[in-house]
Design a protein around this nucleic acid. Structure first.
Lengths: 127, 127
DNA sequence: ATAATTGTATATATGGTAGTTATACAATTA
DNA sequence: TAATTGTATAACTACCATATATACAATTAT
């Protein structure tokens, strides 16, 4: 499995792993039902503790990308793109909510927030 | 000086202090030129280290609400409401920028972001 | 059956960061 | 010149995230 981990940048190893696997799933390199390397094998390959690979797989499982079964292994789930998009939307909504609460506190109205949004998003076909 | 600090909730003491003083400045309880209690006196009153009151005052100074002078004391600055608003706007822009970057990554277009914004902001005279 | 392989669960360092504090220093005022 | 004010440096503590070791449970292969 082609995974590169780097100690520079301070990004946790388990996140580097889960993000790279997530990318492979999203771009089709890994497909539904594919078996992932076992936590222990991947750990040996990457020369890290297998508890760290487990942590990475837990992230992927939490986000609905894979499923793991004791004694069998870990497998790519059917990718529910709708679900994925919904999750992303929820995170975006959280950020916007923060911004809106802060805006309301200091009297920034909806119109102004819209202008900020348009400005930051930039030109867009759907603009 | 009427300041209440609570150990519940985990909010740092220095933030509880700076936020309460900030509120007093913004609602007019404290006016331009008013002298704040000395860091040491406030610390005794609140039964905390005066380094913590200093930390609180540093927050206020960093945000442009007060000024401190060695040997003299700390004083409320002329409140530049424009400046305050600008600073709040900058933080809001930061949050919206995060949301927009994430949105672009997963194909959420500007129109959809606008809808989210409108929904979260809710009904508004300027809507 | 039984050994090998796979994932799970609990406990334990380890490192960094945030909050708070103590203590020594500098400037102003009484 | 003593008292009061803010400043600067360092250290202590608590907490959290990361990574690890080790024992356990389920499945598969022999």
């Amino acid at each position: 499995m082609n995974i590169n981990i780097s100690n520079a940048g301070g990004e946790p190893i388990y996140l580097q792993i889960s993000e790279q696997i997530k990318a492979m799933i999203l771009d089709g390199t890994l497909k539904e039902g594919d078996m992932l390397p076992s936590m222990r094998n991947l750990a040996v390959e990457l020369r890290i503790s297998f508890m760290t690979t487990k942590r990475a797989y837990e992230e992927l499982e939490r986000d609905g990308f894979i499923e793991s079964y004791t004694g069998k292994g870990s497998f790519v789930k059917a990718q529910n793109m709708e679900l994925f998009r919904e999750e992303q939307l929820r995170r975006i909504e959280g950020l916007i909510d923060d911004a809106v609460q802060r805006a309301k506190k200091c009297g920034v109205d909806k119109k102004e927030l819209r202008e900020i949004l348009d400005l930051i998003y930039g030109d867009d076909i759907n603009g």
